[in-house]
């Protein structure tokens, strides 16, 4: 990844995956690595306007471990995934794109998305912009 970018396909909207994304994006921003996040599939609701407030879906069977994790993260003064993403955008070059197919399927306009979503783009545009770096699927 030296000199390249980190390109995350954010496909799963459970809270554990969103936290993973937040940590990776903030870390990449810390290291000066440009980041692009492509939001699709079940991650879409979390990136609707104010979606992060209600999109705390816990993966089936993991309630107790997620609760334990949430308490521990609060003790560590660690922000939630949305705050991590916001911090990353303050300190680094971080872009968030909504998948145009999913936006069309769910009848979503840009004005209905989280203000951190920079644009609605297709997979081809994302692949093209990601060609200079590493692609990660979450």
């Amino acid at each position: 990844m030296a000199g390249g970018s980190l390109n995350i396909i954010m496909s799963t909207g459970t809270v554990d995956k969103l936290i993973n994304m937040g940590v990776l994006v903030q870390t990449a921003a810390n290291l000066g690595v440009p980041v692009r996040v492509f939001v699709t599939a079940t991650a879409v609701p979390a990136f609707k306007k104010d979606g992060y407030k209600s999109a705390n879906v816990v993966p089936y069977g993991f309630n107790s471990v997620i609760n334990e994790m949430a308490v521990g993260l609060q003790k560590l003064k660690s922000g939630d995934w949305h705050e991590m993403l916001k911090t990353a955008r303050e300190i680094g070059e971080v872009k968030v794109y909504m998948c145009s197919l999913m936006a069309g399927a769910m009848n979503l306009k840009k004005s209905e998305l989280d203000p951190m979503v920079d644009d609605i783009i297709g997979a081809a545009a994302f692949m093209q912009s990601a060609s200079d770096g590493q692609v990660m699927f979450i």
Binding site: V23, Q26, T27, L76, S78, I91
Partner: peptide
């Protein structure tokens, strides 16, 4: 102190920018 990854590094970056 009291914060966890990636918080401390973010604190460094904020200071580094200035």
């Amino acid at each position: 102190r009291g914060t966890a990854c990636p918080g401390p590094l973010t604190d460094i970056i904020r200071a580094y920018k200035k």
